[in-house]
Design a protein around this nucleic acid. Structure first.
Length: 464
RNA sequence: GGCGGUAUAGCCAAGUGGUAAGGCACGGGUCUGCAAAACCCUUAUCCCCCGGUUCGAAUCCGGGUACCGCCUCCA
């Protein structure tokens, strides 16, 4: 089966047909950098990172671009409040953004263009829109003439007439129509600004993505992705700008991830009910956070709370523990022998591909991982295990984990000498059937956060 | 008001026509010196409600209810 992607433009799952099979172009709308990101902001970074990893795993060469909006009203406001220059503030939060998503297992994009590096292209873009009659200057501002673009609203399946009810004209704006949106914004005094044919000013939010995609990726790209809340107006406006200019579709597939809720309400900066990634990773293993997200389908909303994370942690722990046991068992295994483990691994891999091909169903992909873990554990109850089978299981589990961006390896932790000694003492005590002492040591180690497991292959330990 | 989404076990969550995945938690059992881990069994005669189509529906159609989101900055 070919990869199928749910396309927000058509509201259907469609077979994925790349423009150039040797180079997939994928653009994900990045953050406006004026603050630390919250976990909701991290969701698109994570889920589309998984999409990217899967496409690569399937043999595609993916050119992945994600922008930074490093100038806009919110940044200017934040910079004023903190008595900082706009670029200084933006740079600072670009750095923290990159750190935060890296900790969540997100690989860097091939390119992270910044709006302020693309102003020249934006100005040209706007000039051409004016020349084509899709934009007009008004008192130093430039607006997009929404009514002129006949397909306006096709992404969010809204008609211009319906949208009009909610549209507003801000004080000081002189739009022909309330639905028109800003392409170029005249600078106020002492504001960061660039020269343009319409005087000093700065670009509107929507034009940057259109200009950057065109500059770095071309007129039409394969996949354009972002959060659900960008569908309207942001992506709708991008389509209007780009397609009015080029006459070609901006992207073949539009993907939108669902929200993260807190107590069933959308997490957002304006509601104030957000959890910063920066804070969250102090309390939770970032891999657990990612694993938790991967257990839901990317288009569905997910609720966030500590109990749910704890449940995800327990599940991930089970997978890690299985993998570690399989590896450990290798030293006591034989060449040849039963290939049951190998067969289980092959079946799992086939199912994994099937699930991921179906619009990146990571929730089902993880269930495959759990099924394989069960089969692996069962297999290991056999008195004799084959090296080839164990290796196949390890490789398959590790690969599937890395496509999801979740490492199933347990961190290597060194034990200090005292603990080593206690372990040795306990082995001796058990040999001599001095179980009282053995249990005493076990309890003591548990207090130090070390859990012991006595297996037929010897005593094992792990961190709590 | 317009547009869109969601409703599946105690909790989380897949599943779009063929008779309910997976995880967490709970209970019983096996294994163990005892544990832990693991495995086995059990846990939704049923998928928000009411009609309809069909040999057959959680899945399709009609109607209703509830919750959420977008229509204004927002991942």
């Amino acid at each position: 089966m070919a990869i199928h992607i749910y396309n927000s433009l058509t509201n259907k799952k469609e077979p994925f047909q790349p423009i150039d099979p040797d180079r997939i172009t994928m653009y994900v709308c990045g953050p406006t950098v004026y603050n630390y990101i919250h976990i909701g902001n991290a969701r698109p970074a994570i889920v589309f990172d998984a999409v990217r990893r899967y496409l690569s795993y399937r043999g595609y060469n993916v050119y992945y671009v994600s922008n930074f909006t490093d100038v806009d009203d919110k940044i200017i406001k934040a910079a004023q409040e903190m008595n900082e220059e706009v670029p200084t503030l933006a740079n600072r939060f670009i750095d923290t953004y990159l750190e935060d998503i890296e900790s969540l297992g997100v690989e860097k994009a091939d390119l992270h263009p910044r709006a302020t590096e693309t102003v020249e292209e934006m100005v040209e873009f706007i000039e051409q829109l004016i020349a084509k009659g899709f934009a007009y200057e008004s008192n130093g501002d430039v607006y997009y003439r929404t009514k002129k673009f006949k397909e306006y609203g096709k992404l969010s399946s809204q008609s211009v007439g319906d949208l009009q009810m909610g549209a507003r004209i801000e004080i000081g704006e002189q739009k022909e129509d309330p639905m028109d949106f800003t392409l170029w914004k005249k600078a106020k005094e002492n504001e960061i600004a660039w020269d343009s044919p319409w005087g000093e000013g700065r670009p509107g939010w929507h034009i940057e993505c259109s200009a950057m995609v065109k500059k770095y990726m071309g007129d039409t790209i394969d996949i354009h992705a972002g959060g659900q809340d960008l569908k309207f107006p942001h992506h709708e406006n991008e389509i209007a700008q780009t397609e009015a200019l080029t006459g070609k579709p901006m992207a073949h597939y539009w993907m939108h991830n669902g929200y993260i809720n807190i107590n069933n309400e959308k997490m957002s900066k304006s509601l104030g009910n957000f959890v910063l990634v920066h804070d969250m990773i102090q309390q939770h293993d970032p891999e657990v956070i990612r694993f938790f997200m991967m257990q839901a389908h990317y288009r569905n909303p997910i609720n966030f709370d500590n109990d749910l994370l704890e449940s995800a942690r327990a599940g991930l722990e089970r997978l890690r523990s299985t993998l570690e046991n399989v590896k450990h068992r290798r030293s006591e295994s034989v060449n040849g022998g039963s290939s049951a483990g190998q067969e289980a691994a092959e079946r799992a891999k086939a199912r994994f591909l099937e699930e991921m091909d179906d619009d990146f169903n990571t929730a089902n992909a993880i269930s495959v991982l759990f099924d394989l873990a069960r089969e692996a554990n069962k297999y290991m109850q056999q008195p004799q295990t084959s090296i080839a089978s164990l290796d196949a299981i390890v490789e398959t589990m590790t690969d599937m984990g890395s496509v999801l961006g979740v490492s199933l390896e347990r961190e290597e932790v060194m034990l200090d000498e005292d603990i080593e000694k206690l372990l040795e003492e306990r082995v001796a005590a058990r040999k001599n059937k001095n179980f009282a002492r053995a249990d005493e040591i076990r309890d003591q180690l548990e207090n130090d956060g070390i859990l012991l497991e006595d297996t037929p292959q010897g005593t094992r330990w792990k961190r709590k």
